[in-house]
């Protein structure tokens, strides 16, 4: 049976990136892959609808982490998209025959090994196929504790899922990775790109401005949508923030773990402080999520209300603004 270093991780894309790099001899952690890829983000995009509810995203667009990692000198990644299903599967088999582990973007809905409760039409899931036995593919899905198997027919469906963020059979594999990586410049580059998105985006829906925009909208939901629909919207925000694949706290904890690891790698106490501050921001996001969940369940405590959540989100916005201002100042001082 082919061998692949499967490590369970919290987020699919950074997990795939870390596992693929580790397979090629460059051992990095998931959090580091997430940070180098500039994975953190915030966006409230009500014009994109998921199951009829506005898109809230806490991470960079699908494929962004891999793209930034592939741009590191010494890393070469081949990426292909397909129109034809048979062609896409044949190409995958060919790569597997040459014992190359292949990363795929898939939809979640059609994957039979996924827990029933998580099978929504979400198309930006990433996994690694590392072998084929009979009619079944051997899959290292980074959010699962152990490798799993999936029939060819279902995998083909998942690769050609339709709808928002359709994967179009996207597959990618590394052809080259450096044996050792000077992390420092790439850490700085990753942090810079995140700070830029979080602080200086001209669009009011993105970054810290986006958090404030969502807060303002959220405060009006009960009047605009009615209580029941408002709770539905609220639950959706919490799902995007906390459901599997986020590592908790809307990716904030994962990014804090990256900052901590970078602080150790670069002997940089300021990053350590930023990590602690971002953890505090993540805790505040969780406070919001817990309160929202209580309201959704109609088991709110006396102090739970929409104004209280607005206050909580305002704190999140302020904390993140502070962290990323500090980080961008630090990044500016770096060579």
């Amino acid at each position: 049976m082919p061998d692949f270093p499967h490590t369970q991780s919290a987020h699919c894309e950074s997990g795939v990136a870390a596992n693929l790099l580790t397979h090629h001899g460059l051992k990095i952690s998931e959090a580091m892959a997430f940070g180098l890829g500039g994975g953190l983000f915030f966006g409230y995009l009500p014009f994109i609808r998921i199951n009829g509810l506005p898109l809230v995203t806490y991470r960079a667009a699908a494929g962004n982490i891999l793209r930034q990692i592939a741009a590191i000198p010494g890393v070469r990644m081949v990426e292909k998209k397909f129109r034809n299903r048979d062609e896409a599967m044949a190409e995958l088999d060919q790569a597997l025959a040459a014992s190359i582990p292949v990363g795929l973007q898939t939809g979640v809905f059609w994957l039979p090994y996924f827990p029933k409760a998580l099978r929504f039409h979400f198309n930006a899931h990433n996994l690694v196929v590392y072998g084929k036995e009979g009619n079944e593919y051997l899959i290292s899905d980074p959010v699962f504790p152990a490798p799993v198997r999936c029939p060819a027919e279902d995998l083909a469906r998942a690769r050609f899922a339709a709808g928002a963020l359709a994967p179009k059979g996207k597959m990618y594999y590394l052809t080259q990775a450096p044996a050792e990586l000077e992390l420092k410049p790439h850490i700085v580059r990753g942090i810079r790109s995140v700070c830029k998105m979080m602080l200086t985006s001209p669009f009011p829906l993105i970054g810290v401005k986006g958090i404030r925009f969502l807060t303002k909208r959220l405060s009006k939901w009960p009047q605009r949508l009615g209580q029941e629909n408002a709770d539905l919207h609220l639950g959706h925000v919490v799902r995007m923030q906390e459901e599997i694949g986020t590592g908790g706290g809307g990716f904030r904890f994962m990014y804090a773990a990256f900052l901590q690891e970078s602080a150790a790698a670069m002997q940089e106490p300021r990053l350590q402080e930023c990590a602690a501050a971002l953890t505090a921001a993540g805790d505040t996001w969780r406070e919001f999520a817990a309160m929202a969940a209580r309201l959704c369940k109609k088991r709110g405590r006396p102090e739970d209300s929409y104004p209280a959540m607005v206050e909580c989100l305002n704190r999140c916005g302020a904390m993140e603004e502070k962290v990323f201002t500090e980080l961008s100042q630090w990044a500016k001082q770096q060579p």
């Binding site: 504790p145 906390e242 459901e243 908790g248 773990a257």
Partner: peptide, 29 residues
Amino acid sequence: VSYAVNSKGEYELIPDFVWQPVNVVNHQA
């Protein structure tokens, strides 16, 4: 697995069940 701070203040990947509020909102959906 999710990220959590241990007693030394360091991040660790900890295998765990799903956080309860996640169950609530998933159930709602």
